[in-house]
């Protein structure tokens, strides 16, 4: 089976005060290895919730989630943390990086958690930063990098240990359109060259154009799913 992600009849409802807010409503979705998939929809349509469920950060009320063959329901929280560490890369909208660590150290940090020896960590961190166009900026702290550069560091950290999938929740939302395009180009390149599966969410038309497959979400349901 070459599906990295398999969602089956996922439901997730939030209780806000006394009102039930259905965030995800009966979503089934499979994502193939090597895909470059956009989850698109307006604000509040359930993109973040869906990505969090795929990433094991949030649990659905019903339905099953499988990532790389692992069925999430059966996993303990620490096994789930381990799975995230080794198989899933994350890029968030903001606050991605550890502010006290340099770009290279931020990338190193995940590898440290993974138990990779120091020498290899350094070599890999520098190599991946070169790949995302940040050579020479290894020792900059996040505060000394532009928003676009910070997101590139986040992408570098997400893909450095060849995860099964990278989940990016509106990675371009805080960037101007040119910088956002640059980041998308980078992700696309990494997807092609390193065969990393990307799933990213957006509400930006221009960003959707980069997707190899566009899954449209409205009020927690998929209403359109097209591959190009």
């Amino acid at each position: 089976m070459n599906n990295i992600v398999e969602l089956e009849k996922i439901k997730k409802t939030y209780l806000q005060g006394k009102v039930d807010i259905p965030a995800i409503n009966n979503v089934s979705l499979s994502i193939k290895k090597g895909g470059f998939v956009a989850i698109a929809g307006p604000s509040g349509s359930g993109k973040t919730t869906l990505l969090n469920i795929i990433g094991g950060l949030d649990q659905p009320d019903s339905g099953t989630v499988r990532v790389d063959g692992e069925k999430f329901e059966t996993l303990t929280p620490s096994r789930l943390a381990e799975l995230r560490l080794f198989k899933i890369g994350f890029v968030f909208q903001a606050y991605n990086l550890i502010p006290v660590l340099s770009a290279a150290e931020n990338v190193e940090f995940v590898m440290l958690l993974q138990g990779i020896p120091k020498k290899e960590r350094l070599r890999k961190a520098h190599a991946i930063l070169d790949d995302v166009g940040l050579s020479g900026k290894y020792n900059r702290r996040p505060a000394e990098l532009s928003g676009g550069q910070q997101q590139r560091v986040a992408v570098a950290r997400a893909i450095v240990s060849n995860p099964s999938i990278v989940l990016a929740d509106e990675p371009t939302a805080n960037l101007d359109s040119k910088t956002g395009q640059g980041l998308l180009e980078l992700m696309k390149t990494m997807n092609k060259e390193k065969k990393v599966t990307f799933v990213f969410s957006t509400h930006d038309k221009m960003v959707m154009d980069y997707a190899g497959r566009l899954v449209r979400l409205r009020d927690g349901s998929i209403f359109d799913d097209q591959s190009k």
Partner: peptide
Amino acid sequence: REFGMLMAIGTTPGR
């Protein structure tokens, strides 16, 4: 928020 991010990327609570 930083701790949330650290946990999301796979840092265990113990760590």
